[in-house]
Design a protein around this nucleic acid. Structure first.
Lengths: 198, 198
DNA sequence: AACATGATGTCAGCTACTGACATCACGAAC
DNA sequence: GTTCGTGATGTCAGTAGCTGACATCATGTT
């Protein structure tokens, strides 16, 4: 069935293992090559050596296949906020959490870049990315509230944190020379502070 | 053809006028009554007294019918930024522009509330709303750059402005007593400044 | 060797959305 | 007042995203 699909050495029989991973790779490749709209779910499935139906068993829709890691990212941010020392200000708590998030992506800059390019090229994918970031912000706000930060401070601090992440991310992948993503976050956070102080 | 569609006195013949407006009203009503997913485009069209095809001539998709005013809002914000005195800081420029935007919605609080409720109830609609806000932010950032504000300050200031708008909007429609939306913006902006100063 | 299980394949069907073409109401030209 | 151009609508066929129901197959358990 799998035909020319990626076959590894360790094949212990069964179907080709890791259909999920193959689907993610196939989708990113096709979105990059011909664009999101010109790619059909059947195309992705075929390239991964499975059926269209199987695609929808692993991912809720055609967009979600690009957003696998977002859950882990959110967990990291929330954990960082929960673990922050009580003495820190809300903004610095969120800032430190975003640094943690940045460190997760640090080593996969090429991948992050290709993915970002695909997303930037299509409004549908942008919408999904924005929703993920909004959820990240909501989770961060909730974690802050858990620490005793009141509204609207919690919500505002979380929003600023996400904004810092967005702006820093863009700069990070735009840079010619690979710079440190975490450093970028710090710089952008300082920028935000400076902006609101004048 | 129009059947029981809303008929006004001034009917000068022709088809029922303002199919676009009727579609918008029908959509909001149905999204509120049975929810977005349980509403079919054919339902909306029927309620408005037109065909499904006509719906798609007026709106690009099933979500867009709820976001008619977003273009005008963005123009208002950009115009306010362009007209701001040169002495103001970027943050205050954006803050003032958001106050202008708030004033546009001020008198239609009930409508804004119903619309917000429908959006809050469905992720698909949230995505679209987030995209509109992101575009608003991008336009604001561009307007700031036009005034000489450099990156990443322009992007960051715009993001903070949008964040202030989001947080203030939520509080505005959550309040029991109708308070002044513009006031809420001001307060939230002060919150943001206080957060980044400690 | 029979069986329970999880992942996949197959198939039918709904709905969002689009292109192509016909039609109709109105106003302008004649 | 008849003809004609135009813009908005209706009709129809077709693609693609997505789902439910059911069959199948590889595994390892008994």
């Amino acid at each position: 069935m799998s035909g020319a699909a990626i076959t590894r050495l360790g094949d212990m029989g069964r179907w080709e293992p890791d259909a999920r991973g193959r689907l993610m790779l196939a989708a990113l490749a096709l979105y990059t090559e011909r664009g999101y709209e010109q790619t059909t779910v059947a195309d992705i499935a075929q390239r991964a050596g499975v059926t269209e139906r199987t695609f929808f068993r692993h991912f809720t829709d055609k967009r979600e296949v690009l957003f696998e890691g977002s859950g882990a990212l959110q967990e990291t941010v929330v954990a960082a906020i929960e673990a922050a020392p009580a003495s820190q200000t809300p903004i610095d708590v969120v800032g430190a959490a975003m640094v943690r998030a940045a460190q997760m992506l640090q080593e996969r800059r090429d991948f992050a870049r290709q993915r970002a390019a695909a997303i930037a090229a299509n409004p549908s994918l942008q919408e999904r990315e924005l929703l993920k970031l909004a959820k990240l912000g909501a989770a961060a706000a909730a974690a802050l509230r858990e620490r005793g930060v009141r509204e609207p401070a919690a919500g505002m601090a979380a929003e600023i944190g996400v904004a810092v992440f967005k702006v820093a991310f863009e700069q990070w992948i735009a840079d010619r020379q690979p710079v440190d993503f975490a450093d970028r976050i710090q710089e952008t956070l300082e920028q935000a502070k400076a902006l609101t102080n004048a």
